[in-house]
């Protein structure tokens, strides 16, 4: 039987020059549900599809506001994202406390990038199994950064990561030209449309399974969930079935 001898730790190269542990970590990102991010000249938007483990459970958080000027969306191991987001919160607070200024998005992205990279270079450690989209506005304007478990970080105009995210990226590539000059509402719509592209046939975007994060120039980063996004969902997918919603409403009826 063939057995891979080069994936026991993240410090050993395979003869082909690959580090399997890092590749497995990147695979974990692909297992996570899809998240999308877009920036315009004035705004940065994150949109995410939330998953629930079972019908009766709550949905797993996908967008985490870090500081008042930015937030992250995650795909992959939520527990690793928790470690990274706690680190980011602490670093962001330290910047405000010692320098009286919000941390630059490029700076915080580099810091988690460095942290993730060291995990790929120490025996007995493992890479983070999570990919992040970091979006918000700093002194240099709106930004979107992508973070990968390997420690690679990139600034993006638009990006999608997670399960079936190729479909979302295709949508983003097709509409790339419209993003830079887009308004706040248009940008949210594009993000939701891109998100919908990567949904499987039997799935829908609903107020329960969708998260939106918006940050802008002169506007704090804020997370929108539940009924707050019903308006966006309705206007974005006007002609599609609004039928399931009243049905869901009936199902939620309780004794009065």
């Amino acid at each position: 039987m063939f057995r891979n001898n080069y994936d026991n730790d993240s410090v050993t190269f395979s003869p082909q020059g690959r580090i399997f542990q890092v590749e497995y970590a990147q695979e974990a990102v692909k297992q996570g549900s899809v998240v999308v991010g877009i920036v315009s000249k004035t705004h940065a938007v994150l949109a995410a599809l939330k998953r629930n483990a079972e019908e009766l459970s709550s949905y797993q958080k996908k967008i985490i506001p870090i500081d008042s000027h930015y937030g992250v969306a995650l795909a992959g191991l939520a527990s690793d994202a928790r470690v990274l987001s706690n680190f980011m919160k602490q670093q962001s607070l330290a910047s405000r406390l010692t320098y009286d200024r919000p941390i630059l998005l490029s700076e915080i992205t580099h810091r988690i990038g460095d942290r993730a990279q060291t995990n790929t270079q120490h025996y007995g450690k493992r890479p983070y199994g999570v990919g992040l989209l970091i979006a918000g506005v700093d002194a240099k304007g709106p930004h979107l950064f992508e973070f990968q478990p390997s420690g690679v970080t990139q600034e993006m105009v638009a990006c999608g990561i997670g399960a079936r995210s190729q479909m979302a990226r295709t949508y983003l590539e097709r509409n790339l030209e419209q993003f830079e000059g887009a308004s706040r509402e248009e940008l949210v719509k594009h993000a939701l449309k891109a998100l919908k592209e990567s949904l499987s046939q039997d799935k829908e975007l609903t107020v329960d399974n969708t998260s939106v994060g918006v940050g802008g120039v002169k506007e704090d980063f804020r997370l929108y969930e539940g009924q707050e996004i019903s308006g966006w969902l309705e206007t974005t997918f006007e002609n599609t079935n609004t039928a399931p919603e009243p049905e869901a409403g009936e199902g939620m009826e309780v004794d009065s």
Binding site: S106, K140, E155, E180
Partner: peptide, 13 residues
Amino acid sequence: SSGSGAGEKASST
């Protein structure tokens, strides 16, 4: 860290 080179905004144009 904050010079114009680092964190230069990616732009389609």
